[in-house]
Simulated scan of single mutants.
Amino acid sequence: MKLYADRMPTAIRQLITDILVVVWVYLWIRVALWVHDTVLLLAVPGQKLESAGGGIADNLADAGGKVGRVPLVGDQLVKPFNGAADAARSLADAGHQQQELVDKLALILPLMAIAVPLALVLFLWLPLRLRWIRRASTALAVRDQPAGRDLLALRALASQPLSDLARLGPDIAQSWRAGDPAAVDALAELELKRLGLRKARAALRS
């Protein structure tokens, strides 16, 4: 599997692009973690509310239990304490619900923050990178074979700009059809150059 080109300009461009993509993903992960931590800070008031409400409710319940033991009027005196304890428990429940909401936001917002950057990497950069790797690996596998050079030449005729083909001569296509080795090697070299790969060994010896 060929990961990087042989020719320096293409290889350097690929390396810089890969580094930038890694840095890009890392920075957005850091942003997502920062959003997560920041959102979690919103749960602090809910935690304090739940703790305070629960503590007040327990204290009022204890006080109500003691007051309820007063002879004759204990049942009447305990009702306000029970009502206040229920109100405190409601505050504690509200604090707990706020924490649950914050926990959900702390999960959803970071995912939203990182979704678009990761989508750009997965659906734009990665397919192009994998396509080059596949094409370069295939070209490497066939470039040193006569039939492989002919396939590379055919690929060049089919995909290279007409201006680049014209530089090889006005009769390059006819020469290729006639099986001219020089024309085949020139076209194969043009395709290899487009991929950033070195010449075939046979072409280097010639």
Rank of each mutant, 00 (worst) to 15 (best):
R13P: 01
L42I: 02
Q160P: 03
D62Q: 13
I29V: 15
P161Y: 09
L157S: 14
Q174H: 09
R194G: 06
V116L: 15
P71I: 07
P146L: 07
A188T: 06
S90Y: 02
K2S: 11
T38N: 07
Q14V: 08
R89P: 00
V23G: 06
M112Y: 11
D171F: 05
V67G: 10
A61M: 06
Q160W: 15
W132G: 03
W34S: 09
L91T: 02
P181K: 05
G65P: 04
L105D: 10
L72P: 08
N59K: 12
L124Q: 07
A200W: 07
G95C: 01
V184W: 00
Q76T: 14
G54L: 02
G169D: 14
N59V: 11
R149Y: 05
A32Y: 01
R177L: 07
L151W: 05
L105K: 13
A57V: 06
Q98I: 10
W34I: 10
G65S: 03
G74K: 00
A202Q: 08
V121T: 09
L72W: 11
W24F: 14
R201I: 04
E191K: 06
L162A: 15
A186K: 07
G196Q: 03
D171I: 06
R155N: 10
Q14N: 10
E189Q: 14
R129L: 01
D75G: 10
A84H: 07
S159M: 15
V44I: 15
V44E: 14
Q98Y: 02
R30G: 13
V67W: 10
